[in-house]
Design a protein around this nucleic acid. Structure first.
Length: 179
DNA sequence: GTTCTAGAAC
DNA sequence: GTTCTAGAAC
């Protein structure tokens, strides 16, 4: 089994479910990129956002409800979270990211990690829902666009700071979180 | 997606 | 000399 199927394997074991309904489950991200990082996945075999069509809109609403539920269960505030999809997913099985905005985590190691959540490489739930509702499908970003977004400088999500490298950026994020 | 590590950057 | 990044992984 290749690494791309890791999520499918993980959700086969109900002991990994933080919450579940008839159609979806919530699990903890195995390599959390912030203090809180959860994934909401449908039980149905939907590979990615690129397989979605308008018939999936009610399913998306349920995934979003579960995203809010897990934040509430953890006693956190919805405003402190980003809820959305990666524009270029790596793992099989559609998964909605529910991640706290601190981005303080030992698993956050690369510029790609940061930019995949803090540039248009991250598709907020509402944006994806709107695109699917109006166009009936989710478009891929061009290779050129993706490369440009991955090369975006490390700009803080809480102030105007731009870091020279990852270690100094992680220190900066931790300082915000301690205030 | 992560791990490993060569060689770039400092 | 050490830190840091970025590409291969059969």
């Amino acid at each position: 089994m290749s690494w791309q199927t890791g999520l499918i394997k993980t959700i086969l074991d109900p002991s990994n479910w933080i919450i579940s309904t008839d159609v979806a489950v919530v699990i903890a991200d195995k390599f959390p990129k912030a203090r809180h990082h959860y994934l909401v996945l449908p039980k149905a075999d939907i590979a990615s956002i690129f397989q979605l069509n308008k018939t999936h809109l009610p399913l998306l609403e349920e995934l979003h409800l579960l995203a809010h539920n897990v934040i509430e269960i953890r006693g956190e505030k919805i405003d402190n979270f980003q809820i959305g999809f990666h524009a270029e997913p790596s793992m099989q099985r559609l998964h909605l990211h529910v991640i706290s905005k601190d981005f303080v985590s030992s698993c956050l190691k690369t510029k790609k990690h940061w930019n995949s959540f803090n540039t248009p490489l991250f598709l907020p739930y509402d944006s994806l829902y709107t695109q699917l509702n109006s166009e009936g499908t989710i478009k891929r970003l061009s290779k050129v666009t993706k490369e440009a977004l991955l090369a975006t400088p490390l700009k803080c999500n809480q102030c105007s700071f731009v870091a020279k490298n990852i270690p100094s950026f992680k220190e900066h994020l931790q300082d915000h979180s301690a205030l």
